[in-house]
């Protein structure tokens, strides 16, 4: 891996520089993350592992701009996430980050199609335009038959597929997944991972947080966190 610096720069998708996050719990100050420096390259499928409370979700939230570091910096696809307003961060989330959650988090009264199109609708696009793209994405995740279904008419796996489609609607620079299969059985989970893997194969950068080694094993790189700090960083090339 002896690429030139320039090349590395070009291939960097996310960079954390000495990022840390402290929380206040009553009088105590808890360090959820401390001094994390991490470079995630384009096209990487990074699994972040660690026991609960190790700060892995906090790390993901910092990358996705849901939370801000109390120290250090986060740079997403060349755009620094510090020193900008909440609205600007929100726009970054809307256009450059796709989120997949453990609890699917679909809006219960919207159809699959509307749920998928939501980020673009928020961006002010008319539904007619959004609809086409949303349908195409739903087909891509294997839900062509479920376009007009509401979440309560879908299985867990299907809901998560819808959520993935929603995360992809804005062609995000990075797809962030927080325990995406935590609420699914092994088999359904596997299908979700295969879907993520195939997305990754087509160049989608993915960062996934999990405490499940089976899930983490899908990554091309695995970082384990311990007490708010990266402990191991395994990079597995294609053998």
């Amino acid at each position: 891996m002896d690429r030139s610096d320039e090349k590395t720069e070009e291939l960097t998708m996310i960079e954390l520089r000495h990022a840390g996050r402290k929380f206040r719990q009553g009088l105590r100050e808890v360090k959820a993350l401390s001094d994390v420096s991490l470079v995630i390259r384009k096209g990487e499928f990074l699994s972040i592992m660690g026991p609960s409370g190790s700060g892995k979700s906090t790390l993901l939230n910092l990358i996705g701009g849901l939370d801000r570091p109390t120290e250090g910096e986060v740079i997403l696809d060349g755009r620094p996430l510090h020193g900008i307003t909440d609205d600007q961060v929100t726009l970054l989330r809307r256009r450059h980050v796709g989120y997949v959650f453990q609890f699917f988090n679909l809006l219960p009264l919207l159809t699959a199609c509307e749920n998928v199109g939501l980020p673009l609708l928020l961006d002010g696009l008319p539904f007619s335009k959004v609809k086409q793209k949303a349908e195409a994405l739903l087909e891509k995740v294997g839900l062509a038959e479920r376009i007009e279904h509401r979440p309560d008419q879908l299985s867990g796996g299907e809901m998560q597929r819808v959520a993935i489609a929603r995360a992809l609607i804005a062609d995000p620079a990075v797809l962030l997944a927080d325990e995406p299969t935590g609420n699914l059985d092994s088999h359904t989970g596997e299908e979700i991972f295969l879907l993520l893997k195939s997305l990754n194969d087509r160049g989608q950068t993915i960062v996934m947080v999990t405490h499940d080694p089976k899930a983490a094993a899908y990554g091309s790189r695995i970082v384990t966190l311990k007490d708010g700090h990266p402990a191991q960083d395994i990079c597995i090339g294609e053998d």
Partner: peptide, 16 residues
């Protein structure tokens, strides 16, 4: 609350 959290996460502005 949760739903609003989701909407904010996928890019809804405070004003929205």
């Amino acid at each position: 609350t949760r739903e609003i959290g989701v909407l904010r996460a996928i890019g809804m502005k405070k004003n929205q």
